[in-house]
Structures are given as structure tokens and as C-alpha cells.
Amino acid sequence: MCLSMPARVVEIGEKKCTAIVDYLGSRIMVGVELLEAVETGQYVLVHAGEAIQVIDEEQAIQSLDFWKELLE
């Protein structure tokens, strides 16, 4: 089974091929080359270190709330 995790884009890399994302308080660098465009503040699905899709903020927050419950 493969999982992708929602994360908020905090910073776009200089060459626009990477971004720093925040996932439940952890900041990690991910690739964003698979996306046509990504902006700071947007939520993306991250799988295997790559942002694979921009998602709706409401959907991302619901998913993050679910993960928080599971991890408690």
C-alpha cells in the first residue's frame, strides 16, 4: 500500500524544483518538479519525497486532523 501525506508549502527552492513543506510541525525538503506550479501556502500531497498533487486546504486539514488522531 502506498500513502501520500498532505503538507503545507513553506518555502520554494531557488530553482523551483524543491520546496520546504511542513507536515505536523516537521519541515522537510521535497521535490516539486512533478507539479506544473506550486506556491507558498498551498497544500500538496507528498509521496516518497515528491509533491505529487496540489490539494484543497479544507481537504488537507481534514486529512491532517485524521492523522493527528491516529498518532496520539
Rank of each mutant, 00 (worst) to 15 (best):
W67I: 13
L64S: 02
A48K: 15
L24V: 12
L64K: 03
E14K: 12
E57F: 00
G41I: 01
A60K: 00
R8N: 08
D22C: 06
E39N: 14
V32T: 09
V44S: 00
Y43S: 01
A37H: 11
Q62Y: 06
G13V: 04
P6I: 10
I55A: 00
R8A: 10
D22K: 08
A37G: 06
V21P: 03
G49A: 01
V44A: 00
E57M: 00
E72R: 06
L24G: 12
V44Y: 00
H47N: 07
D56N: 14
D56E: 10
E58Q: 09
C2K: 10
V10A: 12
V30N: 10
V9T: 03
L71D: 06
R8P: 07
G13Y: 05
V38F: 04
S63M: 10
V38C: 05
C2M: 06
Q42V: 02
K68Y: 04
I55V: 04
A7G: 05
E50K: 15
P6E: 12
Y43E: 02
W67C: 00
W67Y: 14
I52W: 01
G13Q: 04
D56P: 06
K15A: 14
P6K: 08
E58L: 09
R8L: 06
I55M: 04
F66C: 02
I52V: 07
D65Y: 08
E36H: 04
I12V: 14
E69S: 14
E58N: 09
L3D: 15
L45H: 08
F66E: 00
D22L: 07
Q53R: 10
V54R: 08
S4D: 09
A37D: 13
S63D: 05
E11Q: 13
L35E: 08
L24F: 13
I20D: 03
K15C: 10
L71Q: 09
S63Q: 10
E33R: 12
P6D: 12
G25C: 04
V9I: 09
Y23S: 06
Q42F: 04
F66G: 00
C2V: 08
E58W: 08
G41T: 02
L24W: 10
A19G: 08
G13M: 01
M5F: 15
L3I: 15
E57Y: 00
K68C: 01
Q42L: 02
R27I: 02
L35C: 11
A37N: 14
T18C: 07
I61T: 09
G41W: 04
L71A: 13
R27M: 06
E69N: 14
W67V: 06
Q59L: 09
K68W: 02
E50L: 12
S4N: 08
D22F: 09
I55L: 00
A51Q: 03
E39T: 11
I20G: 02
A7V: 01
L24E: 12
G41M: 05
L64I: 12
E39G: 11
G41F: 03
G25L: 02
L24S: 14
A19P: 09
I20Y: 05
A7C: 03
V10I: 15
Q59S: 07
G13P: 05
E69C: 10
A60Q: 02
M5R: 13
K15W: 08
I20K: 14
K68A: 07
G13T: 00
